[in-house]
């Protein structure tokens, strides 16, 4: 596992152990990668991060059209692997989680432990952070900077 913010490591490791998920990617909504597990190439993280943010944005737009306040979680069930995209609203803005899991676990278990992880992250999140506010326009730059930190390129 690789994390930009060390306080995330322990709850995320516990989530991985309990949920038996294969891949996890935790990002801010502006594209900064907070932590990842299971990805071996920065290119994959970049693609997954961008696609995840895009899916959440487009389903948010659908929710607007439906007059709903938004979708907190999106589940895609595949035949061999499935995917959960979930948002956590934090004092530092919205974080997005992308979790890939196989048939060794279930969508119910992954969702259950994701909810536990979300509560733990909110409880442990440092109150202040000395970083400028993130904007959609800086998505690519933020993503690239966090990938350099994670993969050392």
């Amino acid at each position: 596992m690789r994390t930009i913010e060390p306080w995330v490591t322990e709850p995320l490791e516990r989530f991985l152990q309990e949920s038996q998920a294969r891949l996890v990617l935790l990002t801010t909504s502006s594209g900064q990668v907070v932590a990842q597990h299971g990805f071996s190439r920065s290119l994959d993280v970049m693609a997954a991060s961008s696609l995840g943010a895009g899916i959440m944005a487009s389903t948010g737009a659908i929710a607007d059209l439906m007059g709903s306040s938004g979708f907190g979680t999106i589940v895609h069930e595949g035949t061999r692997q499935s995917l959960i995209l979930a948002a956590i609203d934090t004092p530092r803005g919205r974080w997005l989680g992308l979790v890939v899991f196989g048939r060794e676990t279930t969508v119910g278990l992954v969702q259950l432990f994701w909810n536990v992880l979300a509560r733990e992250l909110l409880a442990r999140m440092p109150a202040t952070v000395n970083a400028p506010p993130k904007r959609a326009e800086t998505f690519e730059r933020d993503l690239d900077a966090s990938l350099r930190s994670l993969f050392g390129r």
Binding site: T105, T106, G108, L109, Q111, L112
Partner: peptide, 13 residues
Amino acid sequence: GDALAALAGAVMM
């Protein structure tokens, strides 16, 4: 109920 379903399902399977 969601926690009960997830855990019971996993144990039972």
